[in-house]
Design a protein around this nucleic acid. Structure first.
Lengths: 230, 230
DNA sequence: CAGTGGTCTAGACCACACC
DNA sequence: GTGTGGTCTAGACCACTGT
């Protein structure tokens, strides 16, 4: 029963009945709504809190998670300057376009080859030092004419959520090492052939469908990728 | 109260009163033992199950987690062949010695400089193809004369647990890119200057103290590091 | 069959936040 | 003060396991 409740609440959020940042009804109201006891609702809410879909504040209420800067930092941004603490870098937009998905992109986003996708190129910098080249690919079907906007905010997941009702809540990163090519060298201010980290990410929405395919090329002299294992 | 119960159970495990793989008393017996209700014990046990310190099987009982191959694979081994599924590679022992901790090692293991540490060198291979060079550093105080053994098992965390009552349960990986040096090239069968992943891990025991400092150099042509974010 | 964990319920009380 | 989530308790029943 608590899993059904969980599924129902998730459905309500996907349908936009409860939006990001909004407060849900209290445990007892939800219990009445779904015809179960307060304890059962509680178990569902806590499970969803563990998945970071909801968050709760004692004395206040239960809310749909927003991708705030804090959240994004802890859950989805793992590139850190060597001596320092996690921090969000600036992002400089280099270009946006609509292209047709090749085989690689189609596979990553679970589309058919040739489907329209939006491509974003950005250069990110920390403390004025360029550190990451990002290529971001989005299904056109979900994001409409995003590529025609003049600017983008730095925190994309928050933006996806606010403007397109796309809630990123899971992701999978594949990390490799490579040598800096000419574009890397020019953009990141490193010698060609220097080692770089390549992080390929596929991000998934609440419904489990892939919604973003992102490739980051990171200079490795002063930055690393950090993973906590529990 | 449930946090106190959690702390007590953890303490019992650290003291070796309940050892890896053993079954704990039932929820009601624990409730009597600690003077709380069964629901409170349950909450503590479930929290510890989430941290992978315990695992529970319906109809059977609650057990102290063992680092089985399965566990190790999912929680602590994230290097994967490009096309394939996660898999544990062979390990070929290259050498073991007792050395004095330099500043870097002392900082990682929270020891004073000059403390004795055990150093292990291994070469790991998947499907007969060499893929990882590992340097493993252990505090001598916890692992005694491990370096005098003629052989080591492939799954070290299980071995630490069985032979030295050291339960690894958290770790932190820092990932960088580098160029293959002469030793990498020779051992991993790649050209010098090829890109390699460098994974530095500090592993922590149940009591939160660092117990292993491991540096892995991974060939990046056919392997990657995999991270799941939730 | 007996013993275990898994779920659901109901009620009480506490801690906290906001008005 | 009122309403919220957080904790603790107690009891019932179910599902699963091993004998």
């Amino acid at each position: 029963m608590y899993k059904q409740v969980q599924q129902l609440i998730t459905q309500y959020i996907i349908e936009g009945r409860w939006k990001a940042g909004e407060m849900l009804p209290s445990e007892f109201q939800l219990a009445d709504l779904f015809g179960v006891s307060q304890g059962t609702v509680r178990k569902a809410l806590n499970a969803m809190t563990d998945e970071h879909i909801l968050f709760r504040r004692q004395g206040v209420g239960t809310f749909v998670s927003e991708h705030t800067l804090q959240q994004t930092l802890f859950h989805f941004f793992h590139i850190v300057a060597d001596g320092g603490t996690p921090e969000l870098p600036n992002a400089q937009l280099r270009g946006m376009s609509k292209i047709a998905a090749d085989q690689r992109i189609a596979a990553a986003l679970n589309l058919t080859e040739g489907s329209p996708v939006i491509r974003i190129d950005r250069l990110r910098a920390m403390h004025g030092k360029p550190c990451i080249r990002e290529e971001i690919l989005l299904p056109h079907a979900l994001f409409g004419d995003l590529h025609l906007l003049p600017e983008l905010p730095h925190s994309l997941y928050h933006f996806y959520q606010q403007q397109y009702q796309v809630n990123v809540h899971k992701a999978c990163d594949r990390i490799k090492a490579d040598l800096a090519n000419a574009d890397d060298a020019a953009a990141l201010d490193i010698p060609p052939g220097a080692p770089v980290l390549v992080v390929e990410r596929i991000a998934k929405a609440l419904d489990g469908k892939p919604v973003e395919y992102r490739t980051s090329r990171v200079r490795s002299d002063d930055f690393h990728y950090l993973v906590e294992l529990n």
